[in-house]
């Protein structure tokens, strides 16, 4: 039986706005009309469920069959929970990133940095029953983009999560502790709340670090939590 409870509204300021002057590509893509507040029904409360049998895990992207990628090997571990601290078990996480020189294995990336034949840059892992996930990669390089003069993206790994419902879909980016580019990055900086920005930064973790092999980083992710009421009609609040 599916969980049919609605998801709680997001805390104001903790998410970026669609319209962000500092990020040029939002100019003609951000909707101008106010979003329609829609009550939760089966379509929103539930969502696609993935299993490794149909979506096989790719846990170690630091190498391909023909050899090892160039760069600093890293192991990234973390927990996916909801806002109430409950683990989100058996949920799929997709990741993708640039190689160690800051170049994506993608036709659209024309950055003048070498491609690495041993690095494809995409992985897929599932959380366990405690919401824990782990993968192995190499530290991505910073790369230039044309948003403004001398614009460089900080080191980052892209994340895609689904969670339990259509309403919990999350695309985000993981950053690295101490990166001097963070404070100049419009995509990172357009989140108003400093705490919410800082939670996108993975911490170096000596306990996760593997001797003579890989540096460890910890990155926890929080997905939206649910209300108490099933099929809540949000329009019932506050007006009678």
């Amino acid at each position: 039986m599916s969980d049919l409870r609605a998801f709680r509204p997001l805390v104001p300021g903790t998410q970026p706005e669609y319209d962000a002057d500092v990020y040029g590509s939002t100019k003609f893509r951000a909707p101008k009309q106010q979003l329609l507040q829609v009550p939760t029904s089966l379509t929103e409360a539930t969502g696609p469920q993935f299993s490794p049998s149909r979506y096989p895990s790719i846990i170690d992207i630091s190498k391909v069959e023909s050899g090892e990628a160039q760069g600093q090997r890293i192991v990234v571990e973390g927990q996916v929970t909801d806002e109430d601290g409950r683990p989100v078990p058996h949920t799929m996480i997709e990741i993708w990133q640039a190689n160690s020189t800051g170049r994506y294995h993608h036709d659209g990336d024309q950055h003048d940095a070498p491609l690495d034949p041993h690095f494809q840059g995409a992985g897929r892992v599932f959380t366990d029953e405690n919401g824990m996930y782990r993968y192995i990669s190499i530290k991505p390089g910073a790369y230039p983009w044309r948003n403004h003069h001398n614009a460089w993206r900080p080191n980052h790994i892209h994340y895609s999560l689904f969670g339990p419902g259509f309403a919990t879909r999350l695309i985000t980016q993981m950053y690295f502790d101490g990166d001097p580019l963070l404070k100049y990055d419009p995509i990172y900086m357009c989140i108003a709340d400093a705490g919410s920005r800082e939670r996108l930064v993975a911490g170096f973790d000596l306990d996760l670090t593997m001797p003579e092999w890989a540096l460890g980083y910890r990155f926890n992710i929080v997905l939206r939590g649910r209300n108490a009421t099933p099929f809540e009609d949000s329009n019932d609040h506050g007006d009678h």
Partner: peptide, 19 residues
């Protein structure tokens, strides 16, 4: 209560994901 992780753009290179 924890706060939901902030969203970020999917960017121009998401095609690296299988689809």
């Amino acid at each position: 209560m924890s706060i939901t992780t902030a969203s970020q753009t999917i960017g121009p290179y998401w095609h690296l994901l299988p689809f």
